[in-house]
Nucleic acid binder design. Structure first.
Lengths: 231, 231
DNA sequence: CAGCGAATAATTTGATCATATTCTAGCAAA
DNA sequence: TTTGCTAGAATATGATCAAATTATTCGCTG
């Protein structure tokens, strides 16, 4: 099988260096994480091949990964959709985050360098600007990145994976609730957290993040009790 | 397109009603869970298409799912392998199970019916027989199924998913350690657990399962310190 | 002349796509 | 309401292209 002196056709495929299924995965992940797909909405393969301009195989693989992470739901027949959370589901998520986030913050506090703290501070300031500007999408993205960075600093990859995965589950609902309540009265215990971290007060950091989690997540849970105001 | 003697060449396919990718996923999952794939071992798509007698697409999707669950590892280049755990990884897993398992057992105790308890007891007895018979594979499978059933009884699907996923991560290492130590001195706090559950002593059940987890997992962790006896 | 290393060839494996087949759901007709 | 048909979407295969590891060759140095 000679290559017949392949001439390299200058295809200039212009892809980054990542495989297509990885690119599609990240795009689809962001779609879920930031609530661009509503809870309960159906997700079709062909719909995504058009929306994301990709082939069928990469889309299939991306969907499988997201299903495995709990970001999407396989409906038994061959349908896939964004999961609808129940109050009980939210309670589980709150419980899990109430344990994971403080633990990771505690470890992060012990390990964070001044540079790390500066990075977190910058993220939090950008976050504040998004809130002031009423930029919901920016808030959701920066808030996630703030916590994600905190997870990474803990140097506990498996626990960080678990915590990270939870965001995919409540992402769509978080968007709905924030969209309804506006960006003004959003909780932000990040200042307390950063202060504790600078003082190397690991316990204090854990307490601060716990309050941040409870405030944010309870808002979502309570919105399930009040039977959705039409909208 | 009547069926009218469609070719049926592969008539003996004898598949149940599940799609191929689901079947392949479960087979591959068991391979990891029960340590038929050694830690560090490379996993190739084409190798699995032959080993499991399946097409390429179902195998690819199964692999993606297992990677998302942490059961397999994507090596940056395009290689996939069974993860090699570090001592730190094991510590994280122990920590996570120390929180998840007692919590789920507590909930399971509150909800278990007499029938459920009977089922668990039967599983545990089968488990004992496997140990007596020196049947390592049987032990691994029944031990997993015992805990898995416990998770289900807790009626907390998200937390159960998390706990279940952890087994995939330490499965290969567990097999190695148990294979080295034999099946005789395996921990079994299941008797204490079942007794507490029958008495509806949720706190006691949580304590029992915590000890079971610690005993089993610590054995694995300590085997990492002692630098593997050749082999 | 022997041993080592870099460059290149070859083989293996992964990624993607086009296509055929199978299944589901919706609709029409009895 | 039930049953059969049809349209369309999902599943699965094999072919093709691309990339990476392995093997090989050739030249160099000791």
């Amino acid at each position: 099988m000679n290559k017949v002196a392949g001439k390299l056709t200058e295809s200039a495929t212009a892809k980054g260096r990542l495989p297509a299924h990885e690119v599609i995965y990240r795009q689809l992940r962001d779609l879920v994480l930031y609530g661009d797909l509503a809870p309960g909405q159906a997700v079709t393969i062909q719909g995504l091949t058009e929306r994301l301009g990709a082939g069928m195989t990469p889309v299939r693989e991306a969907i499988r990964r997201l299903i495995a992470e709990g970001a999407l739901e396989f409906q038994g027949n061959r349908r896939v959709s964004v999961p609808l959370l129940s109050v009980d589901n939210m309670s589980e998520l709150i419980l899990a985050r109430q344990w994971l986030d403080p633990h990771l913050s505690l470890r992060a506090t012990e390990r964070a360098t001044p540079d790390d703290l500066e990075e977190l501070t910058a993220l939090d300031e950008a976050l504040d600007r998004s809130i002031s500007a009423g930029d919901l999408r920016g808030y959701l993205e920066l808030n996630y990145r703030f916590h994600k960075r905190l997870y990474e600093l803990a140097e506990a990859p498996i626990l960080a994976d678990l915590a990270d995965g939870l965001w995919l589950r409540f992402g769509p609902s978080l968007r709905v609730v924030c969209g309804r309540l506006g960006t003004q009265n959003l909780p932000d215990k990040h200042k307390d957290l950063l202060e504790a971290m600078r003082a190397k007060d690991a316990e204090g950091a854990a307490r601060a993040i716990r309050e941040d989690v409870i405030q944010g997540m309870e808002q979502v849970r309570q919105s399930f009790d009040a039977p959705a105001v039409s909208n």
